[in-house]
Design a binder for these strands. Structure first.
Length: 472
RNA sequence: GUCCCCAUCGUCUAGCCCGGUCCAGGACACCACCCUUUCACGGUGAGAACCGGGGUUCGAAUCCCCGUGGGGACGCCA
């Protein structure tokens, strides 16, 4: 205490963890990429380290600006802010590999000078050290040169010790002069002082090449943490989830107006858990508890239903103002959605009724049609069922006779009026509720009938009851 | 085909490292009931798993081996 606040943040306390997320803009941004980005971000935030975004755009053929923007948009939407990278700057830039040509050329020269790289067929190859012999590869249907080398040992933070034999020279610069992934990846991780490489398990087999390259540069490799993959759900089929699978794209959830915090929470639980039974957790708490040794080793299947449930949990607890904001944005993009937004006060009333009932924002239009249009659809099945029970037309008549004198100023007043009517006729509330709901909303699902009456207003309710009776 | 990783309810997982407290806990989904003015929410309950075989041990979901299954990698893609 007597040291004062100035010494609280001593340099020895400061983390020097540097992690990076290194996507390539060659396709849509999907769940798997998002989860890898998330785990890197979580680790950076947990340790007080630095989260770097690096764009691996060395594949000129397949790069698209559209995909690049999608990376920025998706990360931003998810709340995964990067400390260094495009748009953020940093001391180790540029952060797009397409702009780092000089750095790679120098790195190649270094390896060539050290006798660890050579040219063949116009490409530059990384040279393994050891005895060479030719062998025919059945799988690849060609003769390859094997090098007698000891296995590469990888110390993985999640998987422990992994051994793998890497026994062939491999290309680091293509014959067109462009450097390949393995090479630029390692060069950049060295240049950007990356301390922990957190990536999908599909890269585990590549890691032996990477370790060899670090060795070639005379640099000690960083810590590796290969996280489990996200597989297709049983309905989607077999194998790891790909961008082509339904529900695999971050963009989809953004368009469906899912809450990003719900998606992030769900994703954090794929391969990690807080150690107790909690699932819905604020991001700050996840940051606090997340650590690499806590990550699972086995792949997880994506479950859209559970994501939906998480989304509902978050939706339920949103303040009315934020819910209205989200809903407004949604209706603006909805065909004909302007009708819902015509009267702000009325819109807010309807949203108050809808919020506790829906599971996701994109159900809103269908759930609230009858509040905003008189030509709402009538559910044929529900109609058949309701009209077959008791004497619904008589109930409608009675409603039409009793309601004009009723007080519509509050749910309680409407409830009282309806109950009085029911008692008078020796019937139950339910005898009126079902048919009234059908006539006024066209369905059997929704908020309480009293709330619907109140928000719709007496005039509109009477008009719909009358019209329904006349038409049936 | 070769190499690497993995293996608890249909799914996500706790437990496994440091064997007994586990006839295996939670969540999603499913079913039943309750709440109720419909539909949701919520509540209660049911069904549902230690992949198989060997070992080690007094004792194994937990440790070891083999098999099987799942996943991944074997590109001048990333």
């Amino acid at each position: 205490m007597r040291d004062g606040p100035a010494t609280c943040q001593s340099p020895s306390n400061m983390s020097h963890v540097r992690v990076r997320f290194a996507p390539s803009p060659t396709g849509f941004f999907h769940i798997g990429s998002a989860r890898t980005a998330l785990f890197n971000w979580l680790y950076a935030r947990h340790t007080g380290g630095v989260f770097i975004l690096r764009i691996e755009d060395t594949d000129k053929e397949r790069n698209r600006d559209q995909f690049l923007n999608l990376i920025y948009d998706s990360l931003t939407w998810l709340g995964l802010d990067w400390d260094e990278g495009p748009k953020a700057g940093g001391a180790f830039g540029p952060y797009r590999q397409s702009e780092r040509g000089e750095i790679y050329r120098a790195a190649v020269q270094k390896l060539v000078a050290a006798g660890r790289a050579y040219e063949k067929d116009g490409a530059i190859w990384f040279k393994l050290l050891g005895e060479r012999h030719e062998v025919y590869d059945e799988h690849r249907k060609k003769t390859v040169t094997k090098v007698g080398v000891p296995p590469v040992v990888i110390q993985d933070l999640i998987r422990g010790r992994v051994e793998r034999v890497e026994d062939e020279d491999f290309v680091i610069v293509r014959s067109d002069g462009s450097p390949v992934f393995h090479f630029v990846n390692v060069v950049d991780d060295i240049a950007m002082k990356v301390t922990h490489i957190i990536r999908g398990e599909d890269h585990l087999s590549n890691t032996s090449k990477h370790v060899l390259l670090y060795d070639g540069f005379g640099v000690k490799p960083p810590a590796f943490a290969h996280i489990p993959l996200i597989l297709k759900s049983p309905e989607m089929g077999q194998g790891k989830m790909s961008k082509r699978d339904k529900g695999a794209l971050i963009e989809e959830y953004q368009q469906r107006h899912f809450l990003p915090e719900a998606l992030v929470n769900y994703l954090s639980l794929l391969g990690w858990n807080p150690g107790d039974n909690r699932e819905k957790m604020p991001i700050a708490e996840i940051v606090q508890l997340f650590d690499l040794p806590g990550v699972n080793q086995s792949n997880a299947k994506f479950d859209g239903k559970k994501l939906g449930h998480m989304n509902m949990l978050y939706l339920l607890e949103q303040p009315a103002d934020r819910f209205a904001d989200l809903a407004r944005e949604y209706f603006r993009q909805q065909p004909g959605g302007f009708a819902a937004l015509a009267d702000e006060a009325y819109f807010r009333e309807v949203m108050l009724l809808a919020q506790p009932k829906i599971k996701s924002i994109d159900e809103l239009a269908a759930y609230t049609v009858y509040f905003f249009a008189d030509d709402f659809p009538i559910d044929a099945k529900v109609k058949e069922k309701v009209m077959a029970k008791g004497d619904p037309k008589a109930r409608l008549d009675e409603l039409l006779a009793a309601l004009p004198a009723a007080d519509f100023s509050s749910d309680a007043a409407i409830e009282e009026a309806l109950k009085r009517l029911a008692t008078e006729k020796g019937l139950g509330f339910g005898d009126y509720q079902a048919v009234a709901r059908l006539a006024v909303t066209g369905t059997n699902a929704g908020p309480s009938i009293t709330a619907i009456f109140r928000v719709l207003g007496k005039e509109r309710v009477l008009r719909r009851l009358g019209a329904f009776l006349a038409g049936n």
